[in-house]
Computed example of a mutant assay.
Amino acid sequence: MPLPVVLPVALIGAGKVAHAAHVREIRDLPDDLRLVAVVERDLAHAAAVTGGPAGFPDAVVCTDVADAVRAGARAALVCTPWWTHRDVVLECLAQGLPVLCEKPVGLDLAEIDEMIAAEAAAQLPVAAGYMKRHDPIVRMFVDHCRAHLDRARRLTVDIHDPNAPHQVAHLMPYPPPPFGPQPPAARAALAAALGPQASPEQQDAYARGLGGSLIHQVNIVHAVLDGSGRELEGRLLHADRWAGTDGVGCRWRPDGELVVDLTHQRLPEHRRYREVLEFTAQDTVATLTLPSPYARDEGARLDIDTWDAAGGLADRHTRTAGPGATGFRRQLLAWARSLSGDGPPLPGLAEVRRDARVMREAALRLS
Rank of each mutant, 00 (worst) to 15 (best):
G229S: 07
L232Q: 09
L232M: 05
E233L: 15
G234H: 15
G234C: 07
G234T: 13
R235F: 08
A239Y: 12
D240K: 12
D240S: 08
R241N: 01
R241D: 02
G244P: 00
T245C: 08
D246L: 11
G247C: 03
G249E: 15
C250D: 00
R251P: 09
W252Q: 04
W252Y: 15
R253N: 09
P254Y: 02
D255W: 13
D255P: 04
G256I: 12
E257W: 14
L258G: 02
L258V: 06
L262F: 09
T263P: 08
L267N: 05
L267I: 14
L267W: 10
P268T: 02
P268N: 00
E269A: 00
E269G: 00
H270G: 02
R271H: 06
Y273K: 03
Y273T: 03
R274F: 08
E275F: 11
F279H: 10
T280R: 14
T280G: 02
Q282D: 12
D283C: 00
D283W: 03
T284S: 12
T284H: 06
V285R: 13
T287E: 14
T287S: 15
L288C: 08
T289D: 12
P293S: 08
P293L: 07
P293A: 08
Y294S: 07
A295G: 05
A295Q: 08
E298C: 13
E298G: 01
G299Y: 11
A300Q: 07
R301Y: 08
R301F: 06
L302A: 00
L302F: 01
I304E: 04
W307T: 05
W307E: 03
D308P: 02
A309N: 07
A310I: 12
G311L: 04
G312R: 05
G312N: 05
G312Y: 11
G312M: 06
L313R: 14
A314D: 06
D315S: 04
D315Y: 11
D315F: 01
R316D: 06
R316L: 10
H317N: 00
T320I: 05
T320Q: 03
